[in-house]
Write a protein that binds this DNA or RNA. Structure first.
Lengths: 211, 211
DNA sequence: CGCCCTATCGCTCGTTCGGGTGATTGCATG
DNA sequence: CATGCAATCACCCGAACGAGCGATAGGGCG
């Protein structure tokens, strides 16, 4: 190692431009050494085994094995791995899942060089790093009433244009019960009708575009 | 200019990491010179006036004035401006809009260094650059019936949970007309009801999560 | 053991939705 | 000029929706 206290970093992002950018930004700090790059989750696991980095900088969205899966897989094998998640999409409850999955921090790609370096140092030192804006979002997410498993299934039925009766058939329950669930969904999502409920579902990440 | 045939490039992206990455990638080519960077649309217009770049590399999504607006504004004043749009979100009909607004090319950030440089040269030479994958998407988009402006307004009403009557009030038209629009939307989106239509709206990028 | 939440089922009733089938105007494209 | 499309308005009607009242049974938790 070039410096005694150097921090060995592994970059994981499917966009080469972003990797180059991170490398360019981080190479300005003499304590940080890029020991490897990976384009997807599988490569990340591979590189982690061979390079044993101190900190992993990982994109959330990647083709194939996504960042969250990779994070979980990594933590399952090596719980002491320090992983800083990076993202472009700010408004997501991926954040929550990332934290639950054991991320040591969560950053947006719009971070300044300074904040990025601070975050890496913080994480390397064993701490957690979370930008203020995101902690605020987290609180919002915690506040929001969350739907039960059944209610989400019903919401998904609505999304697919099914009538209450058809949802009932699909779930093998009575139409009355479906209506009860629909009512609960509408209340919890503060929606006037199923159309708005579906919209809220998308907005809050309960429903996803990629099917 | 360092080289006689050098291409003067302006970078526009709100993520400093991406700008650094692009700068790092492009500075490897001796014919390309970064003459400026901007963080948003307004800055881009400003920089364009002062620097007169040959090619503008612009992100689609930016806070404040988005990339598309900036593109339109730029082309309105300087129709000969050569703008290459960059994006992370692959599945979008922003592409179509970008082309309509006069973009000379459309790239994803996952491009290789090689392709990026080729695209810049191509655009600088007066051509258009469009990755194969995106041309295929464009055809798909062209196939799909697209909603009129009014129909999208009505769809947005549905998304907000408004009844036909309320949409009518909001748009200052009769409820009958709204029903006609709703019917057209349901047909075009092949939806059984407004809930599914809203879902399709999100899936096809007609409606956006960020409000 | 109570308490809360979830899932399930039941009924009524007014409102809204969406299909069917029309029409007219205006604008643009060919 | 004809054709097509968007936007506007109009009527009828059955089916679906959502509100407002319920109830019962099971699981987790203090």
């Amino acid at each position: 190692m070039a410096h005694p206290g150097s921090i060995r970093v592994l970059l994981v992002d499917d966009h080469s431009v972003v990797r180059m950018g991170l490398a360019a930004v981080l190479s300005l700090d003499e304590h940080i050494v890029i020991v490897g790059e990976a384009e997807d989750g599988a490569q990340a696991l591979e590189k982690f085994r061979t390079e044993k980095p101190d900190v992993v900088l990982m994109d959330v969205r990647m083709p194939g094995m996504g960042g969250l899966e990779a994070l979980r897989a990594l933590r399952a094998v090596t719980p002491e791995a320090r992983v800083l998640m990076l993202t472009t999409s700010e408004l997501d409850e991926d954040i929550q899942r990332a934290i639950e999955a054991g991320a040591a921090g969560y950053l947006q790609k719009s971070v300044t060089r300074d904040e990025l370096v601070r975050a890496i140092r913080c994480v390397h030192a064993g701490g957690r790093y979370m930008p203020e804006a995101l902690t605020r979002r987290l609180e919002q997410l915690a506040k929001r009433r969350h739907l039960s498993h059944r209610e989400i299934e019903v919401l998904d039925g609505m999304r697919r244009g099914l009538s209450n009766r058809d949802i009932a058939l699909a779930l093998s329950i009575s139409e009355h019960t479906v209506k009860a669930h629909v009512k609960a969904v509408l209340q919890k999502l503060e929606s006037a009708d199923r159309a708005e409920a579906v919209a809220r579902g998308f907005e809050q990440g309960l429903l996803r575009v990629d099917e």
